[in-house]
Design a protein around this nucleic acid. Structure first.
Length: 552
RNA sequence: GCCCCUAUAGCUCAGGGGAUAGAGCGCCGCCCUCCGAAGGCGGGCGCGCAGGUUCGAAUCCUGCUAGGGGCACCA
């Protein structure tokens, strides 16, 4: 008997009551929110559904609660239903009904927490997409952690997710990168509008070392072109390696330049012209995005004959749709929030539904601190705080966890010094330790002859076992909500709660007998619960891309 | 000027209308004669301000204040 079972039971009861004419003709809910009350005197589970639905059915909360309570108390496994306050239903289960869950979880294994809710939907999730003009920086690391975890969460709900990286290898920014490389190779300072980090020298040296050709003897524009092509490749390789080491691998690295080379840009603009959304003015071609709520129209083809940046966005979006993605999700940094309106407008211009076919998630910035002082992370300033800096300091698991455990909506302060000095500060260890503990308990149990040959859930009667079972039952709902709200941090927060609940159970309930004692049914039954907790912790950590070590 | 995000414990952050607002870290005290004390138990400290909606608001709405990020024929 899980919260989901209770919810289903209540929906059934509501249906039955309405069919009998005991309720008015209101809309019936598809499910009912079942919560664990903070105060245990309020039972194992509680719901406020009578308070929320009474108005719909033309009755008052108290009366509806009484109808529901009478029926619900007849359900098998429910021992008591009480009405509290204005119409809360407080539900108490018998230990056996609650305890069944332990076995269900163990038997489901890696599938516990997964669902087919999003089966059939084909999602393109674009994230990171950092320009190949410098090493992967801390902000990119946040989106890597959040984006990959979101992909895992969506996949756990049955969606087919393609992780995609838009690789800006076209335009003025790349030209500045190439000029900077050339300048450094000649021993000159980087141009004023160029990149000045020490990595520029490094890449320039590698370009020179990597080719037999004497690039520096070429005319300027040819030399620059060589540095552009080779330098971008090197930078790209570095970024890709950093991400891989971070546990994030993209299915598609999409090159912006390919949109221009293939003619996709012209094609997509021609399509918008046919649809009547393009116009010419001041020698430039514009997309009338104001038709769809943008605050100004946007230049697509500049008067000098070059395409504006949005031209690539237009072609890229269309390309994604033509590749068969129902939903294109973009995870962008806060400095891109101004793009939302024009992106939504171009989506609508193609006849699509903004918010469904195109969804843009904005994540706020990460501030890196060292001893409480902000560390600048501007690539141009050359004081680059890279993903490697963070990983070197705290390790991949701690880095990914620290970046993924907070809402992307809030700015995040991470103090390198604090994390690197005392890694025990990081909650990831709390969770990993609990998981490792479940393994050690299982190992000890095995060596003492405690096995899975018996499961008598009624023996799971200690209050700490009730708490643990209740907490473990929440995983499916947590994952579903993380997917629905696109908020993978919910998984991390939940795991911290599971870990705490498990530790308390561990302190109260032994899986192995004391020395001299014999193995009893209760030990064998508790082993199931121990393993169920381990399963939940491992499944959750997997959703975050964090390892679940056997021992620490 | 306009737009977006944020404001909750000493710190970093959860809390998407419900009952006494939570976690980790930090601080104080207690617990290893039995599954690793990287743990548990106890203690102290908090919803930026002012209105509104509601039976009920940290949560929704409005205004204000503060911090961050944006507002190109740049990418």
């Amino acid at each position: 008997m899980t919260p989901a079972d209770l919810s289903a039971a209540i929906v059934r009861i509501l249906n039955g009551l309405q069919a009998l004419g005991a309720l008015g003709a209101g809309q019936l809910p598809a499910d009912v929110v079942i919560e664990r009350p903070k105060n245990r005197e309020h039972g194992d589970w509680a719901t406020n559904t009578a308070l929320q639905l009474a108005k719909n059915f033309g009755t008052n909360p108290r009366a509806l609660a009484e109808l529901l309570a009478a029926e619900l108390s007849q359900v098998q496994g429910v021992t008591k239903v009480e009405i509290a306050g204005p119409g809360f239903l407080n539900i108490t289960l018998d230990a056996a009904a609650a305890g069944e869950l332990a076995k269900l979880i163990v038997e489901a294994g890696a599938n516990y927490g997964r669902s087919s809710e999003l089966a059939g939907s084909k999602i393109n999730l674009e994230f990171v997409s950092a320009n190949p003009t410098g090493p992967m920086h801390l902000g990119g690391a946040r989106w890597a952690a959040v984006g990959d975890s979101l992909a895992r969460v969506l996949e756990a709900q049955g969606a087919a997710v393609t992780r995609e990286y838009y690789f800006n290898d076209h335009g003025a920014q790349i030209d500045r990168f190439a000029r900077s490389l050339l300048a450094r190779a000649r021993g000159l300072e980087a141009p004023e509008d160029g990149y000045g980090g020490t990595y520029i020298q490094d890449i320039a040296d590698r370009v020179l070392a990597g080719t037999a050709q004497d690039i520096l003897a070429l005319p300027d524009h040819e030399a620059q072109e060589q540095f552009r092509a080779l330098g971008v490749d090197l930078m790209f390789g570095e970024i890709r390696t950093s991400l891989h080491d971070f546990g994030v691998d993209f299915d598609v690295y999409f090159h912006e330049n390919s949109l221009y080379e293939s003619g996709a840009v012209q094609k997509s603009i021609a399509r918008l012209s046919e649809l009547g959304h393009m116009f010419e003015q001041d020698g430039a071609m514009w997309l009338r995005t104001t038709t769809f709520g943008d605050d100004r129209d946007r230049v697509v083809l500049k008067s000098d004959g070059d395409y504006a940046y949005i031209a690539g966005d237009i072609a890229y979006y269309l390309d994604k749709r033509e590749r068969g993605f129902d939903q294109c999700i973009y995870l962008l940094g806060a400095d891109h929030h101004g793009y939302i309106q024009r992106m939504m407008a171009l989506c609508a211009a193609f006849g699509d539904q903004p918010g469904f076919n195109l969804e843009i998630l904005i994540g706020q910035m990460v501030n890196l601190l060292r001893d409480g002082e902000p560390v600048r992370m501007s690539k141009r300033a050359g004081t680059v705080v890279t993903m490697e800096d963070l990983v070197d300091a705290v390790g991949t698991d701690a880095a990914r966890y620290a970046l993924a455990r907070s809402s992307a909506n809030s700015q995040l302060d991470i103090d390198l010094e604090q994390l690197s000095k005392k890694t025990n500060d990081n909650p990831v260890f709390y969770v990993q330790y609990a998981q490792a503990r479940t393994r050690q308990v299982a190992n000890n149990a095995a060596s003492l002859g405690v096995d899975h040959s018996e499961f008598l859930p009624a023996l799971l009667e200690h209050p700490a076992e009730g708490e643990l079972l209740a907490k473990l039952s929440e995983l499916p709902r947590v994952v579903a909500q993380a997917a629905e709200y696109r908020e993978p941090h919910r998984v991390a927060r939940y795991l911290e709660e599971v870990a705490g609940t498990y530790h308390r159970w561990y302190d109260n309930c032994r899986v192995t007998p004391l020395s001299g004692g014999s193995v009893e049914s209760v030990h064998r039954t508790r082993l199931w619960l121990n393993d169920a907790a381990g399963t939940v912790l491992r499944n959750g950590l997997a959703l975050l891309g964090v390892s679940a070590p056997e021992r620490m």
